[in-house]
Structure formats: C-alpha cells, structure tokens
C-alpha cells in the first residue's frame, strides 16, 4: 500500500480508486465500507464468465478532513471501465444515504452543529455509466443515486471529483452534473454520449472519435471550466484535489447553491440562454465557444500549461 504522504504528491490520473479514496481524506482516517475483504463481487459477472473484483469496482467509505466527516465514493476505471452494476450501484447510493442520515442525526441532536462538523460527500468518478453485463440493475441504481442527490440538497454537499482516465460518461455524466460542486483536473472528461456513438450518429466528417484532441476539447476539463460546467480546475495531484475539497468542506451549505449549474428554475433559465447561444454560434468545435467567451487564441490556450491557462482563460458568462 502506498504511504499516505507519498499519495499526496502522486498524480491523481495515475492513482487507483483506493489510493484516491485514501489520499483525499486525512491520513489514517479512512474506513472502507463493503471493501474487498468483505468479498462482495458482482454475482452477475461470474455467471457470464467475466472477471470479478471483490469491491465491484468502487471504493466506498468515510474519512475525515479536519473536523469534517467525508463520505468518499471512488470508482475504479481499470475494472470494466468503472461501470455501474448492482453491487457497485448499491454502494454508491447507500454512501450518500448514510451521509444524509448522519447529518439528520447530528442536527437532531444539536441544531447548532458547526458547518465544519457536518458531513460532505466526495465522489471520484471514473466510469462510462451503466454496466452492460447487468444493465437493468445499473440503470435503476443511477436513478436511485439521482434521488439521493436531491435528498442531500440543502443538507449535505455532494462534490464531484473528475480527473481519472475513463472520465465520467453515460448516465453518470448527468449524475455528476447534478451535484453541488465539480472539481476537475485538466485530464478529466465529463459528458453524456461517448465519442464513438457521436461519430456513428453524425458521421466521421463531423466527429472523428479517433481524434483524441477533439474528444478532449469537446468534453475535457478545460472546456468544462470555460463553460462553467466545472467549478474548479486543479492540478493533477491527489494533494491538489484534496486541498480544493478541504476548502469546500468548511463552507456553509447555502454557499453550494450558487455553485450549482442545474437544480432550480433559475439555473434552467441560465442554461436555456446557453442553448440559445449554441443555436446562434453553431460551433464546429468547442474552441469556437472559447473564442466567443473572449479567448483570443483558443488553440494556444488549450495547449497552455495549467498555470497559464488558469491565468488567461476567460470563462463564458452565463
């Protein structure tokens, strides 16, 4: 097991799900739920003759950052692309549920519980969404998760963290979008439809899915940052993500409402203004939108190192 101190400087992109979970919270503070030692692999993969993992591709548990209890969900992209099946789904759903129950119990006991003592949920995504081997159960779990996100509103901040290889796609793409705050590194990707499907639908001329640059420009973190779809763009290290979460952990819950991109009628109206912009601009490439947002040399900005990008990027006024 990598030492916690070594994990901090590790690349978030390189880190596996368990290392991310351990590294995002304080040293030695993580308790895993339904971990590999509990041996709860998916029962649906084995019968198909496919490899199983004892944690079903997701690490769930609770840790602490300072005084804040941090419920962590961390998906493992190397195991079937981080896809959500029945066990995986139950674990992610119940983690949020436990956080809400903890908050309810805390407030019932002490209505003046300081914000920093109240739990938060951090979800490190690495997934393409529903696991086809157990598709129906995966689908239902997505809906359950969305329900928990809404139930957590105004109580427990639910923070999306995206900076792993697979990105966050499919149904999990809108789960992430529905959260209170989104933190990404420049290697993160967030979207709904995978590049191959877009190519199939629109033709290779319009969208060449083998063009990774295009794929990243369309759904990558820099673009999401400029669009306002991710709140924070951090460097690719466990420590950088952790520091951002630590900043968020102590904020009053009300502050998160302003970070949301959807979840209220007012937010929907803002998004509709963006849709109108999409119609007006008819962008061929995300960089067209960057230019519209006031970035003069979007291609160079896209290639710029992190610090330069953060210093220069003009975000789209929503």
């Amino acid at each position: 097991m990598t030492k916690w101190t070594d994990l901090q400087s590790a690349s978030f992109l390189e880190s596996n799900a368990r290392d991310r979970a351990l590294g995002l919270v304080d040293e030695g503070s993580f308790t895993e739920f339904c971990g590999p030692m509990d041996r709860r692999p998916s029962p649906h993969l084995g019968v198909l003759g496919d490899a199983v993992e004892y944690d079903d591709g997701v690490v769930t548990g609770v840790g602490r950052i300072g005084e804040t209890p941090v419920f962590v969900i961390s998906q493992e992209g190397r195991f079937i692309g981080g896809a959500v099946g029945e066990v995986h789904g139950a674990k992610i759903v119940n983690t949020v549920r436990l956080a809400i129950e903890m908050l309810d119990a805390m407030v019932a006991k002490n209505p003046d519980t300081p914000e920093a003592h109240k739990p938060i949920v951090v979800f490190s995504f690495e997934t393409g969404g529903v696991r086809l081997h157990e598709a129906n159960a995966g689908l239902l779990a997505h809906a359950e998760f969305m329900d928990q996100v809404q139930k957590a509103r105004g109580k427990v901040p639910v923070i999306a963290v995206i900076g792993s290889k697979v990105g966050c796609f499919g149904g999990m793409g809108f789960v992430a979008a529905a959260m209170d705050a989104i933190v990404m590194s420049e290697f993160g990707r967030l979207g709904l439809t995978g590049p191959e499907v877009i190519e199939q639908e629109m033709g290779r001329e319009e969208f060449d899915s083998s063009d990774r640059g295009l794929v990243f420009r369309t759904t990558g973190a820099k673009h999401k940052y400029i669009m306002g779809d991710c709140n924070f763009l951090v460097k690719d290290s466990v420590a950088a993500f952790r520091a951002q979460i630590a900043d968020l952990a102590v904020l009053p819950i009300a502050d998160f409402e302003a970070m949301r991109r959807i979840g209220s009628e007012a937010a929907v109206d803002k998004q509709l203004a963006l849709v109108a912009l999409a119609v007006e601009l008819q962008p061929k490439d995300s960089l067209d939108v960057w230019a519209h947002a006031g970035n003069e040399a979007p291609a160079e900005l896209n290639d710029a190192p992190y610090e330069e990008f953060i210093a220069k990027a003009q975000r789209l006024a929503v």
């Binding site: 290697f187 083998s210 063009d211 990774r212 640059g213 295009l214 820099k222 290639d303």
Partner: peptide
C-alpha cells in the same frame, strides 16, 4: 517546453 506537438489521437487534453 511546448515544442512537441503530439498528433491529435495521442492528446489527452
């Protein structure tokens, strides 16, 4: 130092 310009299919940004 930004001098290498990888082909599109190798980019992850």
């Amino acid at each position: 130092g930004g001098l290498y310009n990888p082909p599109a299919r190798f980019r992850n940004w």
